[in-house]
Design a protein around this nucleic acid. Sequence first.
DNA 1: TCTTCTGAATTTTTT
DNA 2: ATTCAGAAGA
Length: 652
Amino acid sequence: MINFPGRFAMSQHLSQRIDYEGHLNPSQLEAVTAAGSPILVIAGAGSGKTRTIVYRVAWLVEQGIDPASILLLTFTRKAAQEMLSRAAELLDGRVSRVSGGTFHSTGNLILRRYGRLIGFDASFSIMDQGDSIEALDEIRKSLSQRLDLPKGFPRARTISDIISRARGSGETIEDGTRSRYPHLVPYVPQIEAVETQYREHKLANNLMDYDDLLLNTVRLMTDHERIRNEIAAGWTHILVDEYQDTNRLQAQMLRLLATGHDNVMAVGDDSQSIYSFRGAEFRNIIDFPNIFMGTKIVKLEENYRSTAAILAVTNAIVQGATTGYAKRLYTRKTEGPKPLAARPADERGQSRFVVQCVKELETHGIPLRDVAVLFRAGFHSFDLEGELGRNGISFVKYGGFKFLESLHIKDVLAYLKVINNPRDRLSWSRILKTLPGVGPKTAMKLAGQIAERRFPPDCSDLTSPKVAAGKPFQDLVNLVAELKEQTGPISEKVDRINLHYFSYLQEHYDNYPKRMRDLEQLADLTASYRSLNRFLNDMALEPPDEDRGAQGRTENALVLSTIHSAKGLEWHTVIVIWTTEGRIPSPMAEGSPEEMEEERRLLYVATTRAKHNLVVVAPRTYIDRNKGVVGVRLSRFLEEVPEEYFRIYVPG
DNA sequence: TCTTCTGAATTTTTT
DNA sequence: ATTCAGAAGA
């Protein structure tokens, strides 16, 4: 062989390069190395989606793209971090400067910087859904006093949903109400009135809710060409994960972010779209090629996760779907047991069966952490949690009730919010309600007055002199004043608040020890923050995830999770409970064919999480509060699956 | 008039 | 676990 002078150096250089061909299949490789056009990757479940994104980032960096100009949009910041750390591994840490986050957090970033241009102070606060519902509820009530609201008036939660969906989709409130809440159509004028006041409330208090973060970003970038170009020039390459779960606004935002370069890779799977309840448009995936001209479409259809026996079932489930890109997943993993379908008599039987399964798996050397129990809604696992407890099986639960949504956490956060912004009326009100003799009415009245004044307020002329003169009220005001003075770390403030709040907690909740532990955890969460405002906003934007790593992985615990929270994850064995009518699909979806289709996709997502064993459990009866024991049918989506794909088991 | 207590009803999924 | 409606109590 001829020995070219440059050859040695060249091959040495090559050896440092990443071996793309060796680690990617032809479709993945095509997506990773595509250049000069927008790319849409239709990535079936378990087809190496994350791998493709990670290698794409690495490839871009090797092409000489500055990592700082790459933007990775994912569903959660945690997903972004996971991908970045995997890419960093490939590239010896050269990707540390890649930006990543959710559409919301990216909007936040942009608005902090340029929000002035559309009338927002850079220090705006972010309302989480709880804040937003609280505000709407207050407005709703104040409205009702005047209009003497009828019995069927929608709850704040419903109003929030209607308004939010209207804003996310561009529909009017009336159209949205008509299609999703036909019985509320008579209240449309009132809902619109609430919306108007809500908007004024946010403007007056320099607040943005989740929708605003997207809406205002889109508005800013649409109206200000110079800013649009400036932002688009900063992030010259954009990768989007889980594109099927974006809503219309997010698609618009992406279009704007990619102005002038169109270097976008969107990855998603329309069959796994499970967030339409909050406005996700899986059609965004279908429309992508129309929005980005010259899009190259790559399909990933080889599944690396599940056995053929499991795929047979999941393919059958998705086959019945009425819309979406046609795709058929295949695998080379032919070994593996048939999925198991269990029909216990009732919920107790189901829980006992799951425990039995888990124990048996353990004797076969499958650790608890490699097993997940999935369900449609948080409360579906209550009985199972009891049974696990009685059997001494440790577990961690994801989804359902949120840490930040429990009342005691919201109470303590309200103190922090008041320190951060003494004019936060709703937080004042929340705190005041913890005082003896103060209910909603007094709290609202006092909060309104306190919020108007300079802090600490002169309390001598407050209405409700009885309360204002009382010691508890004085203590409270002194506490807040003291906290405002305090310059130490935020955790010191939280500790101080906790000290003050513990007595209230003790008096009002039987399970106060648990709640106290939560509050201590809250203090820990502040550790990495130096700005209170920053901390509060991050709490709204990226709530703590009960760290999946620390508990789920190092401790050996069984995973219980809602299907939504299981997205993107996989386990050796997956047990899906309550695969019955009335649970999956949820009765809430009965109203519309679209929602029913989403239930199907939900079951699809659940079953495609399984690598080796898939177990579906469908009790034959459940206990209705009114009717007593009622028979339930197997989920319609499983009825469609040929029976021979399962082993059927009926516990005795 | 407003708060607090009681018992009953209700609860999908989440940025 | 919370929230709601109704009733008693301050």
